[in-house]
C-alpha cells in the first residue's frame, strides 16, 4: 500500500517529445507529406465549418499529432465534417482532406 502524504506527484504538462509516441505522426508524414508544408497561419481553422461551433481546431490537432500528443485525437477527428474548405484556403497547398483520412487510417492501423 502506497503511503499517502496528502499530495501526489503532478503529471507533467509539457510536451515530452522524446517520450511521446510518434507512430501516427510518422504514418501521416509518410502518407501525406504535404502536412510538412504547414506554416501555422490558421487559414484552415478560420474557415472551418466545425470550428465555428465546437472546439475543433484542425491546425492545433495536426500540430499535436506531429508532436506525438495523440491522447484525444480519436474523439477530436470525428468532429471534422470533411467539407474541404480548409483545403481550398490553404496557402501552402496542404491536402487537408487526405490529412484527415490518413489520420483516421493511422488510428485504425496503429491504434
Amino acid at each position: 500500500m502506497a503511503k499517502n502524504f496528502g499530495y501526489k506527484i503532478l503529471p507533467g504538462e509539457s510536451i515530452d517529445f522524446d517520450r511521446n509516441d510518434k507512430l501516427i505522426a510518422r504514418y501521416l508524414v509518410e502518407h501525406e507529406p504535404s502536412i510538412n508544408l504547414c506554416i501555422g497561419c490558421g487559414s484552415c481553422t478560420a474557415t472551418c465549418s466545425t470550428g465555428h461551433f465546437t472546439d475543433f481546431n484542425i491546425r492545433r490537432m495536426h500540430t499535436f499529432i506531429l508532436r506525438g500528443e495523440t491522447k484525444h485525437i480519436k474523439k477530436e477527428i470525428q468532429k471534422c465534417m470533411f467539407c474541404g474548405k480548409c483545403q481550398l484556403v490553404c496557402p501552402r497547398g496542404v491536402n487537408l482532406r487526405n490529412v484527415i483520412l490518413t489520420i483516421n487510417r493511422a488510428i485504425e492501423h496503429l491504434g
Binding site: 465549418s49 465555428h52 461551433f53 465546437t54 465534417m81 467539407c83
Partner: peptide, 25 residues
C-alpha cells in the same frame, strides 16, 4: 456560410443544434 443542412449536422440528432446555429448565423 452553409445553410446548416450539412448532412451529418442534421442527420445525427445530437448535431442538430449545430445545424440550427448555422442557419441562425
Amino acid at each position: 456560410h452553409c445553410c446548416g443542412f450539412g448532412f451529418r449536422q442534421y442527420l445525427v440528432q445530437a448535431n442538430r443544434g449545430y445545424s440550427l446555429a448555422c442557419s441562425k448565423k
